[in-house]
């Protein structure tokens, strides 16, 4: 039965053929060759293969491959290349920074706090600007007062008396009917306090014993004169419930809507721009990296 030669056996025979074995390996192979005929057969097969390969005709070179000065002249790098050397890295760093600003809450929060502090320090200057404007003769508009619901009734706390609500049955009502507490009247309408067109429902006094005594600080706040131009939410007298007293008619609905916009909007816009900028910078960084690799390859080739 013929013995199957292992890969190691073939390696030994191949090296033996080229006389690349050390004396110990050589003696071992020679012992196998004399004892095992399949080793001898395998060695002969390798020897014939080597002889055939050695007879491979040599191909003549089509031309001389000697070099000219033009062949080995170094390729001149474009002038702008050195300036672009670090642009990819810088763009990538800025992109990473901007992404971190967006994604890492602590990082973003720290920056926001810092910017908030900076904004706080600027506020006094805005307060100083008001007297200056007054000194220049600018007459501030009388603040608009909007009353929600009726005056606090003794014992009316927790009775569910919220805002003015809707106007109820408006079949015989005037132009202000159904506008709720904060609605604005159409232009040209006389907004003078008028008699309510419907009878005021009696307010049940479910907690007669509960009396709210205004504190000293609350009284001092109530007696404080109103200044500024912004809307003031307050409690109106009984005859004015459900109406808007617009002593100053310069404020329209658009102004109110603008003022009621969420304060986050201006902050969100720059953040979105930053996100887009980060994405664009990352794309630029990748583009520059690819360009740098291609130019380098071209110059080496």
């Amino acid at each position: 039965m013929k013995r199957q030669l292992s890969t190691k056996d073939w390696e030994l025979l191949s090296s033996y053929l080229d006389d690349e074995l050390n004396p110990r390996e050589k003696a071992r192979v020679e012992a196998l060759l004399s004892a095992q005929p399949e080793y001898k057969e395998a060695l002969n097969g390798l020897r014939r293969t080597k002889m055939i390969l050695h007879r491979t005709p040599v191909r003549k070179v089509p031309h001389n491959f000697t070099l000219t000065a033009a062949d080995v002249q170094p390729i001149k790098a474009p002038r702008w290349l050195p300036t672009m050397q670090w642009s990819s890295a810088v763009a990538a760093l800025v992109a990473v920074f901007l992404f971190a600003y967006q994604l890492v809450p602590g990082f973003s929060g720290a920056l926001t706090t810092a910017s908030q502090k900076a904004a706080d320090t600027e506020e006094p200057s805005a307060e100083l600007a008001a007297p200056m404007a007054a000194a220049q003769g600018v007459v501030a508009a009388t603040p608009e007062v909007i009353y929600w619901g009726g005056p606090p009734q003794p014992g009316a706390i927790a009775n569910g008396l919220g805002g003015g609500g809707g106007g109820g049955d408006c079949s015989n009502a005037g132009p202000l009917c159904g506008r709720g507490g904060a609605g604005s009247p159409p232009l040209g309408v006389d907004l003078a306090p008028t008699e309510m067109p419907f009878p005021q429902p009696p307010i049940p006094n479910s907690l007669p014993d509960l009396q709210v005594q205004p504190t000293e600080s609350a009284r001092s706040v109530a007696e404080r004169p109103v200044t500024g131009t912004g809307p003031i939410l307050g409690v109106r007298p009984d005859e004015q419930r459900g109406q808007k007293l617009a002593e100053s008619t310069t404020t329209d609905e658009a102004t109110l809507e603008r003022e009621s916009l969420p304060s986050e909007m201006p902050a969100q816009l720059p953040e979105r721009i930053l996100l887009y900028a980060a994405g664009a910078l990352l794309a630029v960084a990748i583009g520059l990296l690819v360009a740098a690799i291609l130019i380098k390859r071209k110059m080496q080739g």
Partner: peptide
């Protein structure tokens, strides 16, 4: 090198 040469010769022997 020895290993690659042996395996290459073996394959060439079979192919030839």
């Amino acid at each position: 090198i020895k290993s690659r040469l042996a395996r290459a010769r073996l394959r060439l022997r079979d192919c030839l």
